[in-house]
Design a protein around this nucleic acid. Structure first.
Lengths: 236, 236
DNA sequence: TGCGCACACCTTAGATACAACAGCGTGCCG
DNA sequence: CGGCACGCTGTTGTATCTAAGGTGTGCGCA
C-alpha cells in the first residue's frame, strides 16, 4: 500500500531504440491522466467504489501506476461532474446517491428530453432513431443486455443532440452517467422491462414521425416517468 | 483575429497582489489556487482576456505569483465551465463567443427558467422575489448599475433555486457567467432597458403571485426573449 | 530561387520533492 | 479522574524538475 513510487508500470523502459520505435511497442499510451479519470469513473459508476468511500490521491496513484499529479486532474474533473466531493485536507469522498440526487437527475432529464421532443423532427433524425430502435430490438432478441443499454442511451442522446444545443447535449451526457450509478441492475432485474422500454421508444418515434409535438412530449414523459419509478424502487 | 501568439503580458492590472501577499498582511491567505481561478475567470468574463487569445500556464503563474501547478487546476475547471479550451501542447484558448454559444445559452436559460416559473410559488419565494425587486428599483433610482445587474441576476437565480434542483441551479449559474461575457455593456448602453427589465420582473412576480403558471411562463419567455434580442444586437 | 530538412525554442505532461495543515491519540498535569 | 496540550501521522497544497511534443524558422541543397 505504502509503496510510494510506481515500480512496475514501465512499458517504455525498452532502451533499444529500433525495437521501441518501430514495432515492439504497439503505441501503448492512452493519454496518461485520462487513465486515472477512466479508472475512477468506471469504478464509481460500477459501484466498485461505493458511496461514502474516501479515496486518497496516493492510493489511486499507486493503483493506476502514475504519480499524484494526473490523479489530481482526474479527481477535479470528476468533482465537477458531481461524482465526487473533494474535501480540503481529507480526500475525495465518493458521493452516495441520495434521494435528492435521483429526483434532480430525473427531473432534469425530463426537462431536457421533453424540450428535445417538442421540436419538429427532420427526416434524417427520424431515420437515425428508427435504425437505433431496430438495432435495439435485434440486440434484445439476442439477449445482449449490455448492448441494449448502450443503444438505449444512444437513442436518447441522439434525440437530445438533434436540438443542436451543445450545452444541453453535454449536460444530458452527464446526467446519464450519474443515472448509471443508480440503476445498473434495473434492466437485468426486470427482463420484461426491456420490451416495455422498446415499446416506449416506439411511441416516441411514432409521435415524432407524425409531427405531433404534444404526443411526443407525452410519450417522453411516460417513458422517463417509468424509469423514475424503477429507480425509486432501486434505492438502497 | 489571426494573431497567433499571445500578447497577454500587459493586462496584469492585478499586479498589486504580490505586494499584498508578501508582507502587508500577516495571517491572511485566500485559498491559493483559487486565486488563479478567480483571476482568470474575472479577466475572461470582463473581456480583459479577449476571445481568441492564447494563455500559457507560465504567464498566468507569473501574473498571479504562484507556480504552474495551481494554474493548471484553475485552467481545468474553467475548461469544464466552457470558458476556455485547452489545446494539448499549445496553451489555453480563450473561447470566442460565437453565435452558436449565444443561442445555446439563451435557449438553455429559457428552458430552465420557464421550468422554474411553471411550478407553483410559495409565499416565502414570492416575498423574497418581491424584496429583490424592490431593492432593484431603489438601486436603479440611485443609478448604481453594477448593483442593479447583481440583483437582477439574484432575482433569476432565486427563482431557479426555488425548484430545489441542485443540478439546474448549478447549471443556471454557469449560464449566467457565460452570458456575462456576451452582454456586459447591455445595461449601460440602453439605460431605458433597466426600466423595462424591472417591469418584466414585475410581470413575472405578478403571475407567480396569481398562481397562473401559464402567465408566468409567458412572462419569463418575453423577458428572456428581450434579453436575447439585446445580445443578438451586441454581437461583435 | 524554391523546397525540404533539421534544429531550437516554447509549450504542456508527468514525476518528485517539500511544506503546511488537520485529526487524533497519548501522555502529562491539575 | 478529567481536561489540556503536544507531537505524530496521514493527507492535501504547492513548487520544482525532467521528459516529450509540436511549431516555426533558418539554413543548406538542388
Amino acid at each position: 500500500m505504502s509503496s510510494p513510487r510506481a515500480t512496475a508500470a514501465a512499458p517504455t523502459t525498452a532502451s533499444t531504440i529500433d525495437s521501441a520505435t518501430v514495432s515492439a511497442t504497439p503505441d501503448k499510451r492512452p493519454p496518461a491522466a485520462e487513465r486515472v479519470y477512466a479508472h475512477v469513473k468506471e469504478a464509481v459508476l460500477g459501484r466498485r467504489y461505493e458511496g461514502g468511500m474516501l479515496l486518497t490521491e496516493g492510493e489511486l496513484a499507486d493503483a493506476v501506476g502514475v504519480s499524484r499529479t494526473p490523479v489530481r486532474e482526474a479527481l477535479l474533473r470528476l468533482e465537477v461532474e458531481g461524482l465526487l466531493r473533494l474535501y480540503p485536507k481529507k480526500g475525495a469522498l465518493v458521493l452516495p446517491v441520495s434521494v435528492q440526487e435521483i429526483g434532480d437527475v430525473v427531473e432534469t432529464r425530463l426537462l431536457v428530453e421533453e424540450h428535445a421532443a417538442r421540436r419538429p423532427a427532420g427526416p434524417a433524425l427520424i431515420a437515425e432513431l428508427a435504425e437505433l430502435l431496430d438495432r435495439q430490438r435485434e440486440l434484445a432478441e439476442a439477449g445482449d443486455l449490455a448492448q441494449v443499454a448502450r443503444v438505449d442511451r444512444c437513442f436518447h442522446a441522439t434525440l437530445v443532440r438533434s436540438t443542436g444545443n451543445e450545452i444541453l447535449t453535454r449536460l444530458y451526457d452527464q446526467l446519464r452517467d450519474r443515472q448509471l450509478r443508480m440503476g445498473v441492475a434495473v434492466m437485468h432485474a426486470h427482463p420484461g422491462r426491456i420490451a416495455q422500454n422498446i415499446a416506449e421508444h416506439g411511441e416516441i418515434l411514432d409521435a415524432l414521425r407524425a409531427g405531433d409535438a404534444d404526443a411526443a412530449v407525452a410519450a417522453v414523459h411516460r417513458h422517463v416517468g417509468s424509469v423514475r419509478a424503477l429507480l425509486r424502487g432501486d434505492v438502497r
